[in-house]
Design a protein around this nucleic acid. Sequence first.
DNA 1: AACTTGACGTGAC
DNA 2: AGTCACGCCAAGT
Length: 112
Amino acid sequence: MLRRRSDDSLMKEVYDLVRQIPAGRVMSYGQVGDWMMPPLSARIVGRVMYHAPDSVPWWRVVGKEGDLLIAKRDPRMAALQRHLLQQEGVRFHEDGRVDMASCRWKPFEEER
DNA sequence: AACTTGACGTGAC
DNA sequence: AGTCACGCCAAGT
């Protein structure tokens, strides 16, 4: 049986993973896709995140290099995203990118 | 029905 | 470091 990558069950898998990201930490789109079975391309994850319900901490998913990629569609949402992340203690670089070195999170990672 | 466009990422140069 | 080409594939036009 073939499942389309837009199936609700698949979207739910993505949201369930994003919901596990702790406050103050982030994952990249590609990283999220790599944990899916079958793996999803980062592009698809971005598409799924576009439809994320309020119960999903969408602001904790950023580009691989820490870019707030939602800015391309909605600069105001990007401003909100930055605000929410900073409130959680996420560090930013001068150029507006998230400091991935200190904030990237991996599933099953132990406390540091 | 054809064509373009992305909340992306990788690799080549 | 910064293009450029390309895979991905649903959604918009």
